[in-house]
Structure formats: C-alpha cells, structure tokens
Simulated assay, not measured.
Amino acid sequence: MNICVFLSAADLDERYTAPAREFAGLLGKAGHTLVWGGSDTGLMKVVADGVQEAGGRLVGVSVDFLAAKARANADEMTVTEDLAERKALLLAKSDAIVVMVGGTGTLDEATEILELKKHARHTKPVVVLNTAGFYDGLKTQFQRMEDEGFLPRPLAELAFFAEDGATALAYLEGEIAAR
C-alpha cells in the first residue's frame, strides 16, 4: 500500500519523534511505501529513516522552493513547481492518507484532502494520528462543524482519529482490504 503521510519538517522532541519512529517502523516492516513531502529534515526525516530502515520504499514529492532539502536517497523523488501541484501528486500517488503532527502546511494539506473527500473527489481512507492529543482541538472543531450542519457527511466518513500508529495502520489495512 502507498501511504501518504502529511507531517512536519520541524525538529521536534521525543514526545512526537518516538511515536513517529514507531509508526514508520510498522509501515516499513509491513512492506508499505511512504509517500511524503520529500524533505530530509525534522519529523519528515525521522519517518523516512524509519520506513527505509525497516525495508519500506520512499516516494517523495518535493516542491521547487524546498528542493534543496529533498532526501537524496529516496526510491523516487519528484519536484513540483508549486504546493498545489505537490498536494495533487501526493494524493494521486497514494492509496491512503495519514495526517501526523505538523504546522500550517500540514493543516493545509489535511483540510484540502478532507474537502476533496467531502465532495467525493477521492475515496481514500484518511487517518488523523492524534499523537499526544495534538489534534484534540481539531477533532472538537470538526465535531462542532458536523453537529451544527457545516458538514454534509458525518465526520466518521471523512476521517478516523487514531491515538497510536498501530491503530492507524490496522484501520488503513482494514479499509483497503475491504475494497
């Protein structure tokens, strides 16, 4: 399975890197391919290292203004002209999406993927990996959107919130197997 992971390129503490490393190891050991933003920095590097060390493949999609930070030894690397093209290519190359901890770029990617799913522009499973409760507030906001009529589909049809990597991967594998 090609699993797109949206996540931070920032250097973060063990509260986030340890669970990310564990999740990456699970992906690699299961023989999955990581499809990611291609950066060889921060949490993106931690996950790419973990997947590669465990035997998984790396498919990166960088963007022109960040190409200098792209991972040199990825199995495949594409550099796009802009962020819109990058997001489209990340989605096209993946079977499933995982949203890990991140900043505004990660949030932008996540909300676009959910908006596209809301409008049936894709049917790929989406997991929000809620490491250390990072996305508790977002989950509350999404639930309010559903409760107050802003979402035409239930939140549960758009995304699955997982508290750990093993649960996230089990959900994705189950969803893909059911298709």
Rank of each mutant, 00 (worst) to 15 (best):
residue 90 L to D: 05
residue 176 I to C: 07
residue 105 G to W: 05
residue 78 T to C: 04
residue 138 L to Q: 14
residue 93 K to D: 04
residue 62 S to Y: 11
residue 65 F to K: 10
residue 53 E to F: 14
residue 26 L to D: 01
residue 56 G to Q: 06
residue 134 F to A: 12
residue 125 P to I: 04
residue 92 A to Y: 06
residue 159 A to R: 06
residue 28 G to P: 10
residue 65 F to Q: 07
residue 104 T to C: 14
residue 40 D to L: 01
residue 173 E to P: 10
residue 7 L to Q: 08
residue 155 L to D: 06
residue 152 P to N: 14
residue 92 A to W: 04
residue 94 S to P: 11
residue 77 M to D: 04
residue 137 G to T: 10
residue 113 I to K: 11
residue 178 A to Q: 14
residue 105 G to N: 13
residue 51 V to C: 08
residue 75 D to P: 05
residue 87 K to Y: 04
residue 69 K to L: 15
residue 2 N to C: 13
residue 55 G to H: 09
residue 35 V to F: 10
residue 97 I to E: 05
residue 163 E to V: 10
residue 80 T to N: 10
residue 105 G to D: 09
residue 107 L to D: 05
residue 62 S to G: 15
residue 13 D to R: 03
residue 17 T to H: 06
residue 172 L to T: 05
residue 93 K to A: 08
residue 145 M to R: 09
residue 141 Q to E: 09
residue 68 A to L: 02
residue 72 A to N: 13
residue 102 G to C: 09
residue 117 K to E: 11
residue 46 V to N: 00
residue 49 D to M: 09
residue 162 A to T: 02
residue 50 G to C: 09
residue 78 T to D: 12
residue 34 L to M: 12
residue 168 A to Q: 00
residue 54 A to I: 00
residue 48 A to R: 13
residue 170 A to S: 10
residue 82 D to Y: 02
residue 16 Y to R: 09
residue 167 T to H: 03
residue 44 M to C: 07
residue 23 F to W: 11
residue 178 A to E: 12
